[in-house]
């Protein structure tokens, strides 16, 4: 049986990669993918802890996260398509009209 700490390490490195992706990449789709990466890192941690504790709660929560993430992606991609139609680009820095 693999130690829980390995799972946590993997989860943490995935989460860090996700944050880096959100912060440094300008393409909106890549930013999305990075967000998904962070979500799945969290899912991994949930599942790992659930197995260690012998408890099903963490597993249940993962299903919720997956469902919400699916909805979020649907909305996000719809926004993205609209932005692309208006701006001819998916660069997140190009969408800055609302600055003060």
């Amino acid at each position: 049986m693999v130690e829980t700490s390995y799972y946590i390490l993997l989860s943490a490195s995935l989460f860090t990669l996700g944050i880096l992706g959100v912060l440094v990449r300008r393409n909106a789709i890549v930013v999305f993918m990075s967000v998904e990466l962070m979500l799945n890192a969290a899912n991994l941690a949930f599942v790992a802890f659930a197995r260690q504790q012998g408890n099903i709660d963490g597993q249940v929560l993962v299903f919720f996260v997956i469902t919400v993430a699916a909805a979020e992606v649907a909305v996000g991609l719809a926004l993205l398509v609209t932005i692309f139609r208006n701006k001819q680009t998916a660069d997140v820095d190009a969408i800055s009209q609302l600055h003060g």
């Binding site: 944050i19 959100v22 300008r26 997140v92 969408i95 800055s96 609302l98 600055h99 003060g100």
Partner: peptide, 16 residues
């Protein structure tokens, strides 16, 4: 208001 520069990534950095 200069804090609100419209760049999503800056906001995300602030959140982080």
């Amino acid at each position: 208001r200069t804090l609100q520069n419209g760049f999503v990534r800056t906001y995300a950095l602030a959140f982080f």
